[in-house]
């Protein structure tokens, strides 16, 4: 007679399955994460902008920070390369760990840390110099003096953002002579020239026409092979098109996060549901 073996299998409710999945996902992200944010708080005299943010940013993915205006997306983005230091009214506390190093600690080499993160702002801000010098700027700050090397990098990065053919005959012209879309691509080329590992993009297409927006979006899709991109956007469709991971924020807190198909199509919280309905 065959002996029957019995193993106890607990019955799992739908809720606990979801929870287990979320834990598994969090563990997976943690394993591959490039940035780990722990208990990040940003305050002003008037109140808190970011409340106890805990977030793992996965490597070589596009992470989209989504949420209504004033929810703290840009502040979170700028905390990552400590540009919040420029705003003396802000009090920042918590940990931001990049490659095992807490960048919030005093005595950090901010220049080197910031060079690892290219920044693309809402509006392009070309430096008051020529097109060539804009791309060469970061390289010179890195201490690269070889003109040949700089020229090569300028060309490579302008080609990468699809701007080379448009500007190769007027590299000495002021960067401000370019159209807004071209300026934004120039800013991206300028950021890429210093070889960052992370790209921080704060609504990078909000000032652009649909064609320039498409160019930037396609570039991001290509760039994510080699870079981690953290992008702030208001546009739900853009989040769906680009994001590998969506973080929904509301009044300085992370409300939901996950794969865009998961959280934008089946939101769990009422706040996100309402935001998606209003947004659409």
């Amino acid at each position: 007679m065959k002996q029957m073996t019995f193993t106890y299998q607990p019955t799992l409710s739908a809720e606990s399955v979801t929870m287990q999945n979320e834990i598994a996902m969090a563990e997976e992200i943690k394993d591959t994460s490039i940035i780990s944010i722990k208990n990040l708080n940003v305050k002003t005299r008037d109140g808190a902008i970011l409340k106890n943010i805990n977030l793992e940013i996965p490597k070589n993915k596009i992470v989209v920070l989504l949420g209504p205006s004033g929810c703290g997306k840009t502040t979170l983005l700028k905390s990552l390369n400590r540009l919040t230091d420029l705003h003396k009214e802000l009090k920042v506390s918590g940990q931001i760990i990049i490659d095992g190093q807490d960048i919030m600690k005093a005595g950090q080499n901010l220049s080197a840390m910031r060079q690892r993160m290219g920044l693309l702002s809402q509006r392009p801000f070309p430096l008051p110099a020529s097109i060539y010098k804009n791309v060469a700027y970061g390289l010179k700050l890195k201490g690269i003096r070889s003109k040949k090397l700089i020229a090569h990098s300028v060309e490579t990065n302008l080609k990468r953002v699809g701007l080379w053919n448009e500007v190769k005959d007027r590299l000495k012209s002021p960067a401000t002579s370019l159209s807004i879309g071209q300026q934004q691509r120039l800013c991206l080329a300028r950021g890429l020239a210093v070889k960052p590992t992370i790209i921080l993009a704060d609504e990078p297409t909000s000032a652009l026409d649909p064609i320039s927006t498409k160019i930037i979006e396609n570039l991001f899709k290509e760039l994510k092979q080699h870079y981690t991109i953290i992008m702030v956007t208001h546009v739900l469709r853009q989040a769906l098109r680009l994001a590998d991971h969506v973080v929904f924020m509301y009044y300085g807190e992370i409300i939901e996060q996950g794969h865009p198909d998961e959280i934008l199509k089946n939101p769990k919280t009422t706040i996100l549901k309402k935001y998606l309905i209003d947004g659409n």
């Binding site: 420029l86 901010l110 910031r114 060079q115 920044l119 801000f125 008051p128 700027y137 700050l141 210093v194």
Partner: peptide, 14 residues
């Protein structure tokens, strides 16, 4: 503009 200062700092300027 603050954005211009941020652009310079984010490229590694002191």
């Amino acid at each position: 503009p603050v954005g211009m200062k941020e652009a310079s700092l984010s490229l590694g300027a002191t």
